[in-house]
Amino acid sequence: MPAPDILVRAHELTKRFGQFTAVDAISFELRQGEAFGFLGPNGAGKSSTMRMIGCVSPPTGGELSILGMDPVADGPAIRSRLGVVPQEDTLDVELTVRENLLIYGRYFGLPRAVIADRTDRLLDFVQLTERGNDQVEPLSGGMKRRLTIARSLINDPEILLLDEPTTGLDPQARHVVWDRLFRLKQQGVTLILTTHYMDEAEQLCDRLVVMDGGKIAAEGSPRELIDQYSSAEVLELRFHPSEHDQAAEKLRDVPAERMEVLADRVLLYVPDGDAALAAAGDLGLEPLTSLVRRSTLEDVFLRLTGRRLED
């Protein structure tokens, strides 16, 4: 018997397209009220997982239960309690901003009066009240994204699914979207999001899984993952390209938990970045630039997969 506060339970969930395995026997549980993230590069299987949870893609294998129901048998019943923000905007460009919410609400069978009431509230929430009677096409990318978020909330969903919510947005628009999502989280809405931005995952997720090649590489809170898979600090050194390889070789003498040699930089995982920088100087190394920073999820990902997130 599943615990009552578990909204989504996946056990060895698998999705294959022909010979290709997009999602490879992953297991996870999502609890009520948490913000849960799938972090991984493009092609990691995040969107396929989201589509299965959204009941628009039948699993090929394993078990999946959403709100205690089976996504294949009870698709419409589950979807009526979900909100979905797809990766690609699917707003209706033949309708105005308000009409987009009206028709989408009607798809859920909601009465017009209820929709009108919620529309006022939601447009206010996503700061689009003045654009209510405008066509959708002239809106900026950030506004369209916010409208899509408002649309996904029209049925007062128990779980909000966000597939790459800020991909393609400029930094300012991203921050506005994050701010709105953070408020939703404060209001107790359960969020599931996919992202290949580690800052997005760190800002929004209480708990996340790192996905790579259709598998879950690690699971935990951002803090736990960093503590477990990375050091407290990271020293980033950049050398002249002609000295890069030689310098990397010499740096092996600096005491570090781990070293990553990238194409353009060398990363040293150490408890104390400044001490390591001094040690490098003692070896006679003269980097072009140096940076001491805290570990991030990017470092966790690099450690787990040997690759960078946004490559």
Binding site: G54, V56, G75, P76, A77, R79, S80, L82, V84, P86, E88, T90, L91, D92, V93, E94, Y104, Y107, F108, G109, N155
Partner: peptide, 14 residues
């Protein structure tokens, strides 16, 4: 192009 059916299928519509 309009992806109208994609968005509708995310709701209880079949």
């Amino acid at each position: 192009y309009a992806k109208l059916y994609d968005s509708a299928l995310a709701t209880p519509m079949r």
